[in-house]
């Protein structure tokens, strides 16, 4: 069990002339509560960037499916792709608008397996040991995809390349970098950050940042 400590209350100090970050009026309705606009693409990482060679890369769907399926990089490249433009929000309070991705939708991947009726949740897992959990019904109908291009170019390693999960309607920690597979589960289980204080679901519009929010 993690230890818990209480934080001391914040003093009423304001830094003269410090305006903080911005929520420009013209895009305010696209910024979830508590989020600020960025134009760069901050790199967030919990560990060293893996450098899995493409000829050793694979992608697997397993768990509550009749038989698991694994694609090699070349096989994965032959799957039909979609290009989407979406806004992304990180729990560290930045939102980036109109990010353009190309990848394979979760719906397309599911066509290769037969999902057991007991499957309700998904655990995404990555090179380096990162995991994050999602509800199955929030990944279907175009809500989630495995992307390998950003802005028309191969996805850079620091942003999760060769391929990452993108689930834009949830905080971006759910969009696992360096993804290698999805495991379908009956019951929800917390992933890497969800097991340490972060919200089990993570909807930015409901500001589901921390467990208990």
């Amino acid at each position: 069990m993690p230890l818990r400590y209480t934080i001391q209350p914040v003093a009423g100090f304001i830094s003269r002339g410090f305006l903080g970050r911005r929520r420009p009026a013209e895009v305010e309705n696209r910024l979830p509560p508590g989020q600020y606009l960025v134009t760069d693409f901050p790199v967030l990482s919990a560990g060293p960037t893996p450098h899995t060679p493409l000829d050793r890369w694979s992608f697997t769907i397993e768990g509550l499916v009749q038989s698991p399926v694994t694609w090699s990089w070349d096989e994965f490249q032959k799957l039909p792709t979609q290009t989407v433009t979406v806004d992304i929000s990180c729990v560290t309070k930045w939102t980036k608008l109109d990010t353009k991705w190309r990848g394979v939708t979760f719906d397309t991947l599911l066509q290769a397996v037969q999902v057991e009726p007991t499957a309700h949740y998904v655990m995404a897992y990555s090179d380096g040991g990162y995991t994050t959990n999602l509800p199955l019904d929030e990944m279907v109908n175009g809500q989630a995809f495995v992307a390998y291009e950003f802005d028309g170019k191969p996805l850079a390693p620091e942003h999760g390349g060769p391929a990452r999960l993108v689930v834009p309607h949830l905080y971006f920690w759910k969009s696992a970098k360096w993804i290698r597979g999805l495991r379908l589960m009956e019951r929800n289980a917390p992933g890497f950050w969800e097991s340490l204080g972060y919200h089990i679901h993570g909807d930015p519009w409901k500001e589901e940042r921390y467990s208990g929010d």
């Binding site: 304001i14 410090f18 903080g20 970050r21």
Partner: peptide
């Protein structure tokens, strides 16, 4: 640093 809206960094 603390902004008037409470934002801190």
């Amino acid at each position: 640093l603390t902004a008037p809206d409470g934002y801190q960094t």
